[in-house]
Amino acid sequence: MQIFVKTLTGKTITLEVEPSDTIENVKAKIQDKEGIPPDQQRLIFAGKQLEDGRTLSDYNIQKDSTLHLVLR
């Protein structure tokens, strides 16, 4: 499925993911596309910070959802 990741600069990254993918996995995909190390990434969805060990389906993230990427 496709999800979107919006950065603070207003750029939107499109990712191909599975509901069973972990947040860690998603961060690795963002690193592949953007070169941002996962340890600098914070992903936010519906006002919640997403934890590495959980999956997209744990957070009820569905296709065409938009996550927000904050760098630390």
Rank of each mutant, 00 (worst) to 15 (best):
L15R: 00
K48W: 13
H68P: 01
G47F: 03
S65P: 02
E16M: 08
D21G: 11
K11S: 14
K6F: 08
D58I: 03
Q62L: 10
A46W: 03
D58Q: 08
P37N: 10
I23D: 01
L8F: 04
T66R: 07
D64M: 06
L69M: 05
L50R: 00
Y59L: 07
I3D: 00
I13W: 02
I44R: 04
L50P: 01
Q31Y: 08
T9N: 15
L69K: 00
Q41W: 13
E18R: 05
Q31M: 09
P37V: 12
Q31V: 07
T14V: 07
Q49H: 13
T7Q: 05
G53W: 07
K27N: 04
D39L: 13
A46S: 13
M1H: 06
P37K: 03
E34I: 05
P19G: 14
E51L: 03
D52M: 01
R72Y: 15
V70N: 13
H68N: 15
T66N: 03
R42Y: 14
I30V: 12
D58H: 06
L50I: 09
E16K: 06
K27S: 11
Q2S: 09
I36S: 12
P19R: 12
T55A: 09
L43P: 01
D21H: 15
D58F: 15
N60R: 06
Q31H: 08
I36G: 05
T12M: 06
K33F: 15
E34V: 03
R42G: 13
I36D: 06
V17M: 10
D64W: 12
P19K: 04
L67H: 01
V70K: 09
K29S: 08
V26L: 11
H68K: 07
L71G: 09
I3S: 00
T55Y: 09
G53S: 10
L71K: 14
L71A: 11
R42W: 15
D32V: 06
L69V: 06
P37F: 08
G35W: 04
I3N: 00
L8E: 15
E24Q: 03
Q41V: 12
K48S: 13
E51F: 02
Q40P: 05
E24M: 08
R54E: 12
K27F: 12
D64H: 07
L69N: 01
H68W: 01
Q40K: 07
R54G: 10
K48T: 13
V26I: 12
R54M: 12
M1L: 05
S65N: 13
I3T: 02
Q62W: 10
N25M: 04
L67W: 01
I61H: 01
P19T: 13
K63I: 08
I13M: 15
Q40A: 08
G53D: 02
I36L: 05
G47T: 11
T22Q: 04
E34A: 05
V26F: 03
T66H: 15
L15K: 00
K63R: 06
T9W: 03
D21F: 15
I23V: 15
I36P: 15
D21A: 09
Q49I: 05
R42L: 07
E18T: 10
L71T: 11
A28F: 09
F45W: 05
A28Y: 04
G35E: 15
R72T: 10
V26P: 00
L56R: 00
A28N: 11
L8K: 05
V26M: 06
T55V: 15
T14M: 03
A28E: 07
K27W: 12
L43Y: 03
F45T: 05
V5R: 00
T14R: 06
N25K: 14
E51T: 03
G47A: 02
Q40E: 12
I36A: 08
F4L: 11
R42T: 14
K29F: 03
N60S: 11
A28D: 15
D32G: 06
T12Y: 12
L69G: 01
Q62N: 06
S20I: 12
V17Q: 11
K6P: 02
S65Y: 11
Q49P: 10
V70Y: 09
V26A: 13
Q41D: 02
S57G: 08
I13V: 09
E16R: 08
A46V: 12
Y59K: 01
L69Y: 04
I23N: 02
Q62S: 04
E24T: 09
I13Q: 06
T7K: 04
T66V: 06
K33I: 11
L56V: 12
T22Y: 09
G53R: 02
V5K: 00
V5I: 09
D52F: 04
V70P: 02
E16W: 07
G47M: 14
G47S: 10
K6T: 06
P19D: 10
D21I: 09
V5E: 00
P38S: 11
T9Y: 06
V17L: 09
F4W: 07
G35Y: 09
A46D: 13
L69D: 01
D39N: 04
F45H: 09
T66F: 03
L43M: 05
